[in-house]
Every structure is written in C-alpha cells, then in structure tokens.
C-alpha cells in the first residue's frame, strides 16, 4: 500500500502571547513547526505502515526551509519526502495550492490513500484536503476520527460531525482528512532521526510537476487578500476580585442579573 501525506510548515501559533496593549501577536521566538494537525495524519499513516507494510511519501509546498518539516515527518516514519518549491508557487490560495499538490501527486504515480490534517493552524481553512480530492476526482471524507478497517480495497472510517459520528465506506484510492481524535502522534524514534538525516528530500518545481503556469501561485489564485487587520480581542469587561464570601455573593448575583437581562435565565 502506498500512502501520501501532504503537510505544511506553519508558525508556532498555539502558545502565542498577545500584547495586551497593542493587541498584536508577540513574534519573538516564534518557530516554524509541522502543522500540529498534520501530525495526526502522519501518525495514522505510520500505523497503517506497521500493519500493512505501506510506503509513505510526504509532500509539502513551501520555501526551502520547509525541508525541516519534511525531515521531521521522515523521523516519524515517512519513507520519502518531496518539497514543492518554486518562486512561481508563491502567494497561492487554497485553490492554487490544492492544484499544485494534486499535480505533484499525479507525478508520484499510483497510490492507495492520501491522508491530510483537517486544516493548518495558520490559514485555518481546511480547504486544501477536499480541494486535492476534487482535482484528482477521488472519493473523500473530512473530519475522520477513526480508520475502522481496510479490506479488499475498501476503507471504512468514522467521520465526526456536529451531532455524532458517521460510518462511511469507500473504495481506495481515496483521500481522508483526519482530526485529533484519531490517535496520539508518536515522537520520532532514534532510527527515524537517523533516517531523517540521511534521506534525500526531492525538490520539485513547476516543470517537474507539469503544472499549468496559469493555475499556480498568486496568478492562479482566484482570491486576493486585500486587507489585514488586528482584531479587537479585548472586551474591556468588568473584572471583580472578591475579597470575602460577601463580595463573592454579590459578584455572582451580578452575573445572574446579566444572564436574566440576556434572557438566558
């Protein structure tokens, strides 16, 4: 079985501190990491590899620095890594990104499964996974929380939706985007770390993937970011620090009054 895992390198934003005065992100010491939600896709692939002896190819689109993320993915069990890097890829939105990744996947050749993180923590769109499936005309499922079974070229998965879990079956090749509930990502093993140092990361550009120049990068992107603003996070609400039980009682009565005004009570 051959599994493809597209990943993204993102800024470490989960523990970012906000400057309470300016309301902007404190950027010092922000490192580049593998998108945390991609770790679940890598782990899911690694578990299938243990079970079925699969081969895992990881790909990423980004600058040369993103090679670090690919090497980390190798340390977790991926066998091959491809970096899609080209000035012409820059500025891509999710449409152009999913096209570029789909072109690279076509070039890789036969595969059984594409596993993606549900979304990246920087863009937070979740659009690239289903986009790749559309480019490649694959059956797909998003928000997958469990791979139930793989048998005779058919995969059965559980998909987390608003009010529960759907059980879905589909033929392979197919694409899944996975959520955190699916597993606990492993730490890189020593063997993995050695492999990560030794393996070659292939560099592919526009020519190697046979991409249409009109479909890639900013030029191929239907959407345009026209403004970036810092959201006003602070509500400047009332903060009370009750010194005794009497004050605490008063604070809670005030809260209950607010709930009554809002017609919640």
């Amino acid at each position: 079985m051959r599994i493809i895992v597209p990943i993204k390198q993102v800024p470490e934003t989960t523990n970012v501190k906000m400057d309470p005065v300016t309301g902007t992100m404190v950027r010092e010491g922000v490192e580049a990491i593998i998108n945390p939600l991609d770790l679940y896709a890598i782990e899911a692939a690694a578990q299938l590899k243990e079970k079925f002896g699969s081969k895992i190819v990881t790909i990423s689109m980004g600058p040369a620095k993103a090679e670090e993320a690919l090497r980390e993915a190798i340390a977790m069990g991926c066998d091959e890594a491809i970096l899609l890097t080209d000035k012409a890829f820059a500025g891509a939105d999710t449409w152009a990104t999913s096209y570029t990744l789909a072109q690279a996947i076509r070039r890789i050749g036969e595969f059984d499964l594409i596993l993606c993180g549900e979304r990246a923590t920087d863009g937070d769109t979740g659009q690239v996974g289903p986009g790749i499936a559309a480019w490649l005309d694959l059956p797909f499922a998003t928000y997958v929380s469990k791979i139930e079974s793989i048998q005779d070229g058919e995969i059965i998965v559980e998909r987390m939706v608003e009010n529960g879990y759907e059980m879905l079956s589909m033929p392979m090749p197919c694409l899944l985007t996975v959520v955190k509930e699916i597993n606990y990502p492993r730490l890189p093993s020593l063997k993995g770390k050695i492999a990560a140092k030794q393996k070659q990361v292939a560099y592919w550009g526009t020519a190697e993937i046979g991409a249409q120049p009109n479909n890639i990068g900013l030029k191929g992107s239907p959407t345009r970011v026209v403004k970036i603003a810092t959201p006003q996070v602070a509500r400047f609400g009332k903060i009370v620090q009750p010194k005794d039980e009497h004050e605490l009682n008063r604070a809670l009565d005030e809260l209950i009054d607010m709930l009554k005004q809002k017609a919640i009570l």
């Binding site: 999710t94 096209y99 937070d124 769109t125 979740g126 659009q127 797909f140 928000y143 992107s221 239907p222």
Partner: peptide, 22 residues
C-alpha cells in the same frame, strides 16, 4: 459546518472559482 467545509472546497475547485473559509 462539517458539510459546508467539506463540500465547498471541492465545489470551488470544480467551478474554478475562489472560496473563503469561515
């Protein structure tokens, strides 16, 4: 929703148009 965020990206690809999430 889980439906909108699954369907719309694929639809935008097929209709060759832009999509903005959430």
């Amino acid at each position: 929703t889980t439906t909108g965020r699954s369907l719309m990206p694929a639809l935008a690809v097929k209709c060759a148009t832009g999509l903005t999430a959430d």
